[in-house]
Structure formats: C-alpha cells, structure tokens
Computed example of a mutant assay.
Amino acid sequence: MLSLRALNRATLARQHLLRRADLSAEALIEHLVGLQAQAPHAPYFGFWCRLKDFRAAELSQLLTERKVVRIAAMRGTVHLLSARDCLELRPITQVVFDRAVNLPNVDLAALAKAGRDLVEEKPRTNKEIGELLAPLWPDHPPESLSMAIRDSLPLVQVPPRGLWGSSGQTRTTTAEHWLGRPLASAPSVRAMVLRYLNAFGPATVADAQKWSGVMGLREVFAQLDLRTFRDDQGRELFDLPDAPRPPEDTPAPVRLLAPFDNLLLSHADRTRVLSDEHRKIVITQNGLVSGTVLVDGFVRGAWKFDQARDTAAITVRPFVRFTKKVSGAVEAEAHDLLAAAAPTATPTVRFAQAGA
C-alpha cells in the first residue's frame, strides 16, 4: 500500500522537487521526458524550481543550437523536448493527432506533401500555410487546412519562439528538416513507459495514458518487470523496482511550479498533488493552467509573474491561510525567482487575500 502522502513524496522525488538537482537543462528535459510548453516562457520557470544553477540563456542556447525543440507531442500539446526525444516520441504520439484530423473528401497524403513542401521551403505561420493551401482545396477553410498540416506533420516551432526575452509569431517547419535527421522508424513504446514511470511514478496504466494520450498501454505494462502497489483507493500502481520512494514524512520545501507544469497534468488522478477542489481554480475550462504554490508537497495557492520596463512582480494567491513560516518561505522563493528571471528589475512580491 502507498498512502497519498507516500505517493506524493515519491512523485516529488522523481520531479526533483524535494531538492534541486545539479543537472544541465538538457539532462533535466530528458529526465522529465519533456516539459509542457504552450506558454513560451513557462518551461524556464519549470527549470528554476528544479535546478540548482539554471540560467535562462542556457535553454535559449539549446533552442538556437537545435539540441532542444518545441513541438506538439504528448496529449497533442506543445512540449519542450530534446532533439533525441523529439525523433523518438513524436512518431509514438502521432496516433493522438490522427484522431483529430477531420477533412472529408481530401487526399490527406497529398495535403501533407503540399504542406511539407511549404514549411521545408521556409518556416511559416499557420495563417501562411492555410492561405497557400487554400487555392488547392477551395472547399475547405484555410484554418482547417493548416490545422490538418499541424496534425499530419511533426512541426517544430523555430526560434525566436521560446527564447527568453524574445517574442514573435509562431513559425514551423518539420522536425526532420530542422534537425537534419529522420524520425525513429521503430520507436519503443516500452521505453517510453519506463521513462514515464521514472519521472512520474508510481502510476496506473490510466495515468500513463493520460500523460501520453496513447491508449492501449495495459499490454505494454504487462510485458515489463515492474513492482506493483495499491493506493488508498485500491487502484493498482506500477513502478520501477529501484526508483526512489521516500518515507511519507520526508520534508517537502515550498516550490513555485510553472504554469502548465506537467506535474499537474500527467496523471488521471491528480490528487497526489492537486485536490479536486483546487483543480477547478488552477485549470480553467479553456485549458489554461496557472503557476502554483506547493506547500508541504501539495498545491496550496497560485502565483503570477508580471514584468514592466524597470519592475518585476510576483503576486501570490493562497488558497488556504498561510502560517507566518510558510508565508516567509513563499516570499523567499518568489524573490529568488525574480532575481533569476528579472535580475535588473526592482522586485516586488505581493500576497492576495487567502481563499479558494
């Protein structure tokens, strides 16, 4: 049996949230099997709460050197992946995108070839792709055509998208063209499941399917040499035999999780870190996910980063009343984040009124 707190501590240990890791940004990306990255700068906050000595320039350099890419993958959402994982995982998750394609009376192979020719000629925006394809398929809206290309091809978002301190339209080209290498011809679903458990376990089959968007994984789990547990609801959990599972009374420091952090999105049952009550506040109906405050390992508030020309602020919204000790720890963590994210700005940490 694993209690809720034991499950919480095991997951935090895998996520490097019990203590910051002495790893490179690229190593952390591969350990976590990517970071969800709809918001261009969200992954940077994910690194700051997990690494001992992270600088934004390190990740920006990985993107410009094509060692890391921004690409829609697990769950059909944009992730930050290493180049190696992009080529290995994107073919596995293609089934997620195949379910989304809905263009009747269109030769999808011909459409994909036309789209590939366009984006490999030069990176293009979705609007440009749709407008250029519209004369060939006039019976379909340009937006539908560009979305079909996004679902049919492994499109990476090229810099300056995702660079710290930069902005610009989202332009894409194919992963093969950008990285100069083909996608994996025989990607291993078993390896993907093992890596998921290493980063997010212990977990149920449903958890792994929720994280990846790939269904039918029970057979894969059955082929693996795994330890099994039960949670306090009686569900069967699987884990790597030698993975860390700290005692449930292991201290968990305050952490400011990034917006869209995969810790909150990679299990069918998220109560190991996020209660059902607070989930309704953190994750909106249109899919936005707030930055959150972990207190004793569980989400107990939300936070928001704002920057003007000479100032930077973090506003913390507690969901419960913080003790003086917890407030001090949250404020210290927020100031450290501001010093890393906006070193030349005047920092401010504000607390909104407590309450869910």
Rank of each mutant, 00 (worst) to 15 (best):
E120I: 12
R300W: 08
L217I: 14
L111G: 00
S266R: 05
L111F: 00
A27H: 12
A334C: 14
P43E: 10
A356Q: 06
G168N: 05
A73V: 08
L264N: 01
F322G: 00
N198Y: 01
K210V: 10
D261L: 13
K210T: 13
A37G: 09
V330C: 06
R181S: 15
A203W: 11
A340C: 15
F319S: 02
A13D: 11
G130I: 04
F221N: 03
T125A: 14
L89W: 03
E331V: 11
A27Y: 07
M1E: 11
S266F: 10
E26K: 08
A10P: 10
E65C: 03
E128N: 05
R150K: 15
G162C: 07
K280Q: 09
P259D: 07
T93D: 03
R50Y: 04
K304S: 11
R245S: 02
Q36H: 07
R218M: 04
Q209I: 12
R230Y: 03
P246Q: 05
R99S: 14
W164C: 03
E26T: 01
G180L: 13
V119H: 06
L288F: 13
G328K: 13
G34H: 09
A252V: 09
L35K: 11
H41P: 12
F54I: 06
G162V: 08
V273T: 09
P259T: 06
D231R: 02
L62W: 03
G165V: 12
S327I: 07
F97I: 01
A313D: 05
E248C: 01
S166T: 04
C86A: 15
D85L: 10
A21K: 07
F238W: 07
M147R: 14
A72Y: 09
G115R: 03
P104G: 04
E277Q: 15
R55K: 13
A27L: 12
L23Y: 11
E331K: 15
T93S: 10
R181Y: 08
C86P: 12
P347E: 04
W137Y: 14
F45R: 12
H16R: 13
A312R: 02
G301I: 13
F54E: 05
S82M: 06
L338I: 11
R116S: 11
R270F: 08
A114V: 02
N8K: 08
S152K: 08
T228R: 10
A72T: 13
L136W: 02
Q223G: 03
I92Q: 01
A356G: 08
S152L: 15
